[in-house]
Write a protein that binds this DNA or RNA. Structure first.
Lengths: 240, 240
DNA sequence: AAGTGGTCTAGACCACACC
DNA sequence: GTGTGGTCTAGACCACTTA
């Protein structure tokens, strides 16, 4: 079954096995490119591709003149999937429900700055909405949209369309920053989510930019018992 | 400043800009490799390297015979750094403190199965420890170690060494699964962390394998107000 | 059948780090 | 200097997919 695989894949597999098994412990110097070249009887670009990929994945570190070394697996990092709420609920086999709780258009005040970095006075859409899984509240969404970045949003009927889905389709690619924390539900959040005041909630804050300009920010409150984030990962040492 | 950059980096930057700016919206067909080759006056391997990297990053999708296309940015994903607790505290400029609260060696019972997938009766080390930042409790750690996978652990003095650090150094590379949730502190956790019972805590569960065999599992309780996880990310569409 | 991307070669020059 | 990795070339053959 490994006979049909591309050569670079086979080489990569061999090396990864050596590293993961501990056969080549952290700090161990890997063979030089020209050695692997001979060993596998291939061109240098082929081994270089493999080694570059391993370095990019954070498994090894490459130093000119010195060679390539197995990295210390310092610090855990995990790739979290933060699913689209609707898709997530549907994937659980439940009916997705959505309600717009409040809708305001107003100028940004100083209080908005910590959630969305727009200039004071900028035109904002401020929404609160609730997502339901079947009959049960699933998440409370506090959303701000910078109309300077997405003027079309002013005309959208967010009573019918969840802002997250709409934005995803109309602001194609962007940068984002996520922050995950735990907070006790205050009475307002508790009422909206149908949970006891003080219940632990998972709070996801997401801020989104497009070419440096803030587009939207959102705080999502999930009842702590309902939502968890799972991440399966390959160990990446601090890597870049 | 861009004149000195490697050519493939310049090409990649150009294409990413077009995509992120929305100039090439999702679904847009990118130029073929031979077109980019002409456009930049370079060899095909150079453009191929760029396009492969973009595909690997999830920004585009490549189909033989059809071409390369900008992907739909479906679903948020974020790379969370889950720092080593000691390194994290030190990085905040505080003194790191550590205490072993309890230590037991016993056989695995059915109750252990949900946290660490070892056979019933397997030899386990079960620890509880507390991490401090300066004088203040920072995290409570509930740790299980499968001695079948790491027999040396039985002889280690975990009153002096945090098990996380020791394991990191002695079980170099591994797979792990993380789960992040919010829970209310019960009275026991609250006492250990010096917080009010019921306070929201961020709970990180991590299970670790080495070549398929369970090595360790850990549950970390952080006071919700103290610890948050931040992730800055480049948009990755559901992809690989 | 044709055209795309996937892979690979056998060279080359260069930057950089260490000696 | 010397040897490593970083980058690039100008070809080539193949697999797959779609028309």
């Amino acid at each position: 079954m490994s006979g049909a695989a591309p050569l670079h894949q086979r080489i990569r597999g061999d090396i990864e096995t050596k590293i993961v098994s501990g056969d080549w412990p952290p700090g161990h110097r890997l063979p030089f490119e020209h050695e692997l070249m001979e060993q596998y009887g291939c061109a240098r670009m082929t081994v270089n591709k493999v080694m570059s990929a391993l370095a990019h994945a954070g498994l090894i570190e490459r130093r000119r003149r010195a060679g390539s070394f197995v990295r210390q697996p310092a610090g855990q990092s995990a790739v979290l999937e933060i699913p689209d709420i609707k898709a997530d609920i549907v994937a659980r086999g439940q009916a997705y429900g959505y309600e717009l709780l409040s809708y305001r258009r107003r100028s940004a005040s100083g209080l908005d700055l910590e959630s969305i970095a727009v200039p004071a006075g900028a035109d904002l859409l401020v929404l609160r909405c609730r997502h339901r899984a079947g009959p049960n509240p699933f998440a409370l969404e506090e959303r701000r949209i910078a109309l300077a970045a997405v003027p079309e949003a002013a005309a959208v009927d967010f009573a019918a369309n969840p802002p997250g889905s709409w934005l995803l389709q109309h602001v194609p690619w962007h940068e984002a920053e996520h922050q995950i924390a735990a907070r006790n539900a205050d009475s307002e959040v508790a009422a909206a989510l149908g949970i006891a005041p003080g219940a632990a909630c998972l709070v996801v804050d997401r801020r989104t930019w497009r070419s440096g300009a803030p587009v939207t920010s959102v705080r999502l409150w999930f009842p702590g018992t309902l939502q968890t984030f799972v991440a399966r990962f390959t160990p990446a040492a601090g890597g870049r």
